[in-house]
């Protein structure tokens, strides 16, 4: 699958972060982008759109990223969910990977990191 055909869901409670990430993804050629502002919305949107990749913040109101990750994987064990957090502690990393995260990115996420990620998923 090429990068242009990827469907990506960006989940972060920060409008600023969502805009920044979606801008970079658009520049990479991704056209089908969805946004969610908390874990609950992310689960709903995942079920509705079945994206090829989810970029998920951890600290969010209502439902955390890790809880949302677990719910998404319960329905779709092959889901590719990349956790992104400013709190890149060993504990958070372990928790995310143990819960089945595809990868973990420490914020601030650089444009290059995002580009590398979508190319990897788009292969």
């Amino acid at each position: 699958m090429s990068v242009e055909n990827l469907k990506i869901l960006v989940c972060d409670d920060s409008l600023f972060v969502r805009k920044k990430i979606t801008n970079v993804l658009k520049n990479c050629g991704v056209t089908e982008l969805y946004e969610a502002a908390d874990g609950e919305q992310a689960v709903e949107m995942y079920n509705k759109y079945s994206p090829d990749l989810v970029l998920m913040d951890i600290v969010m109101p209502r439902m955390s990223g890790v809880e949302a990750l677990k719910l998404i994987l319960a329905d779709d064990p092959k889901a590719k969910v990349v956790m992104a957090s400013s709190v890149g502690t060993q504990e958070n990393l372990k928790e995310a990977i143990n819960a089945g995260a595809f990868d973990f990115l420490q914020k601030p996420i650089s444009d290059t990191q995002l580009e590398t990620l979508v190319r990897k998923v788009g292969k």
Partner: peptide, 20 residues
Amino acid sequence: AANLEFMNLHNGLYAVNLSN
């Protein structure tokens, strides 16, 4: 959102240091 993200980023990096 930008200023909240600055705080979130700074505090996150602080949490990493405190943990390490």
